[in-house]
Simulated scan of single mutants.
Amino acid sequence: MQATAEQGARAAQGSTMLECLDLTRVYSEGPQDVTVLDGLALTVYAGERVAIVGSSGSGKTTLLNLLGGLDQPTRGEVRIAGESLLALGNAALGRFRNRHIGFVYQFHHLLAEFTALENAALPLIVRGQRKKDAEARARKLLDRVGMAERADHKPGELSGGERQRVAIARALVTDPSLVLMDEPTGNLDQYTAASILALMDELARSSACAFVIVTHDLALAAHQDRVMRLDEGRLTEQPRSPKAG
């Protein structure tokens, strides 16, 4: 059977999954313009995990918003799976995000009135998949992140680490091309952060999707394939150091 265009875009590991070209974001603040990102370039390959570190206010969240199509650059473009986000209208961009991009936020953003299962299944339901099928897929992901026995609990009944695991399941339920993570261990205790780190390692080994992780956690960054530092609007690759064992 002939491969679809989407399957072709998700082909073998090593193909380009994310590409930023001359990415620039300038904000107007009163009479002055503030340049947050300045001609930034970045390429991330399928199956690769890239950590981005930098001081507070360096533009890391702005960069994630641009990569996820939540904001538009002042200049330059973002390409994911060969598709330029600038070429997509609002409706098409929403569909593209749903199919290709998974988000893991620092504060998880789970819906309080929904169970863990319903939260994890939501991206597929938004896509138009039958609830039964969406929840069957979500159960598999919750089991994978160690949350099968908590699937019927609402966020208020879950610990911080458990909520973050549900958020990771939600990000992966659509089998995305790219997962964007904003401080995924920032609000977790050391033990829970270590378990999330082990989970990310497992998922990276078994998945062809690319990961871009914004973090202040140098131990988390050291576990990734590459570490980039964002400073004065530009990314520079950091020297490799042995991963923590």
Rank of each mutant, 00 (worst) to 15 (best):
E29T: 11
G89R: 04
R49E: 12
I52E: 00
V179W: 06
L218V: 06
F211I: 04
L86C: 05
Q2H: 14
V173R: 00
D71K: 03
R130Y: 12
M200R: 07
G245V: 14
F211E: 08
Q2K: 14
S28W: 09
A167I: 04
H223F: 08
L40P: 01
F211N: 06
L70H: 05
L18N: 00
R10M: 13
A121Q: 03
G128H: 02
F107M: 13
M17D: 06
L70D: 07
E232W: 09
V126Y: 01
G14N: 02
A116G: 08
Q129P: 05
G54Y: 04
A81G: 00
R49L: 13
Q164A: 10
R226C: 11
M181V: 05
S28E: 14
D38W: 04
A5P: 03
S55G: 14
P176T: 07
E162M: 04
L218H: 07
R144F: 12
T192V: 15
P31G: 15
G54T: 00
L141D: 02
R25D: 05
L85W: 07
I196W: 02
K131D: 13
R229P: 07
P242H: 13
R150V: 00
S56Q: 11
L85D: 01
E237K: 00
Y191E: 15
T4Y: 13
A169F: 01
E232V: 13
L93Q: 06
D33M: 13
E157S: 13
L86T: 02
H223S: 15
G94E: 02
V53W: 08
L70C: 03
G8D: 11
A222W: 01
A81H: 04
V179Y: 04
L178Y: 01
G82F: 03
G186K: 00
D133P: 09
A11P: 01
A134C: 07
R25K: 10
Y105P: 09
M147A: 08
K140H: 15
R234F: 10
Q238K: 05
N119R: 00
P155M: 12
L124T: 02
R229A: 15
G14K: 06
R226Q: 07
E183V: 03
L23C: 04
L63K: 04
L220H: 03
L218N: 06
L66H: 00
S159I: 02
R137N: 11
G47E: 03
L172G: 02
T192P: 10
V145S: 09
E202I: 10
R240G: 12
E29N: 15
A208I: 09
S241G: 14
I125L: 13
T215I: 10
T192M: 15
D189N: 10
Q13Y: 07
G57F: 07
L111E: 05
Q2P: 15
G14I: 06
R79F: 03
I52H: 00
L111Q: 03
S84Q: 07
D22E: 14
G161Q: 02
G8R: 12
S206E: 15
K154I: 09
T192F: 14
A91Y: 11
A198T: 05
C209Y: 01
R139V: 10
R234V: 12
T115V: 03
G54N: 05
